[in-house]
């Protein structure tokens, strides 16, 4: 596991296709993620961005089949969806999804849900495990970690649930975090906090981030590079600043124009607001 540290990309997707029987849902997607990269995948509904994410996790739902190359930490996620895939998920790559209500277990306390991957991937037990659980909760800036650890998810707010999901995803110190629309179900003031959290968590740990979103403003806030997808295809890829100012593809241009047209109705962003910062 540790020998693939060198120049090999953390994630290498090339010629990825996803089929549902004869129907091609994703065709020829290429994406490389190096350690520490912050990459956005932007697209509208049906663009294939979530299927691309699930392919990277080796978690495509049953009748769907992936082909092409998807290497995560050197492990082939297309063929190795079994035992090898299990080892990669949780230790090399972890994920946060849109709806924490469905990705978390309603019958298990928050503490036990965080303890599970810590035991499985890091072999922690007893007092050590307990400390790690509370650390994981305070890392995502949840107030009163002891109380949250004892809670069930119906007892905490939507924003807190998403923080718990992020705590679980970060608990095993993955090298890449995959976040699929992590703030889409949240209120805008809560969204701002979650984006800040993802931003600092990834930066402090030197992790790579793959952020999937339909929202250009969200993607541009915490990633440096974007892949634009449409109808299952990668349309173009490049630095956020270039995509926003000089899109090469007419579709990207239209996407940027729509976002700007709506934003134009708002007064200019107040100075010093977090959204005023460009990506570092």
């Amino acid at each position: 596991m540790s020998r693939v540290q060198g120049a090999a990309p953390l994630v290498e997707v090339s010629g990825l296709r996803v089929h549902d029987g004869d129907r091609e849902l994703v065709g020829a997607v290429d994406l490389r993620v190096e350690p520490g990269d912050r990459v956005g995948i932007i697209g509208e509904s049906g663009s294939g961005k979530s299927l691309t994410a699930l392919s990277m996790l080796g978690l495509l739902p049953h009748p769907l089949r992936a082909s092409g190359t998807v290497l995560v930490g050197g492990t082939d996620m297309v063929s190795g969806a079994g035992r090898a895939g299990d080892r990669v998920r949780g230790s090399t790559v972890t994920a946060v999804f849109q709806e924490p209500l469905t990705s978390l277990d309603p019958l298990m306390s928050v503490g036990r849900q965080i303890a599970w991957p810590l035991t499985r991937h890091r072999g922690l037990r007893g007092r050590e495990l307990r400390t790690a659980v509370l650390d994981a909760l305070s890392d995502v800036r949840l107030p009163d970690p002891e109380r949250v650890a004892r809670s069930y998810i119906h007892e905490i707010s939507g924003g807190q649930r998403q923080r718990v999901a992020i705590a679980i995803a970060l608990a095993c110190r993955p090298r890449v975090l995959l976040a699929d629309e992590p703030t889409t179900a949240l209120d805008v003031t809560v969204q701002a906090g979650i984006l800040d959290l993802l931003d600092t968590a990834v930066r402090e740990r030197g992790m790579a981030l793959v952020l999937i979103s339909h929202d250009l403003a969200v993607v541009s806030r915490i990633t440096d590079r974007v892949l634009v997808m449409r109808n299952g295809r990668g349309i173009e890829q490049g630095p956020v600043a270039r995509i926003l100012t000089a899109p090469a593809d007419p579709y990207t241009e239209q996407l940027v124009a729509s976002a700007r047209a709506l934003e134009a109705h708002l007064p200019p962003a107040p100075a010093g607001s977090p959204s005023g910062e460009g990506p570092a």
């Binding site: 805008v188 003031t189 969204q191 701002a192 984006l195 929202d215 250009l216 403003a217 969200v218 541009s220 806030r221 956020v240 600043a241 926003l244 940027v256 976002a259 700007r260 934003e263 708002l266 007064p267 962003a269 107040p270 607001s273 977090p274 959204s275 005023g276 460009g278 990506p279």
Partner: peptide
Amino acid sequence: RRLIDAIPRLP
């Protein structure tokens, strides 16, 4: 104000 400040903006 908080609501307005929280809106993510394009750079």
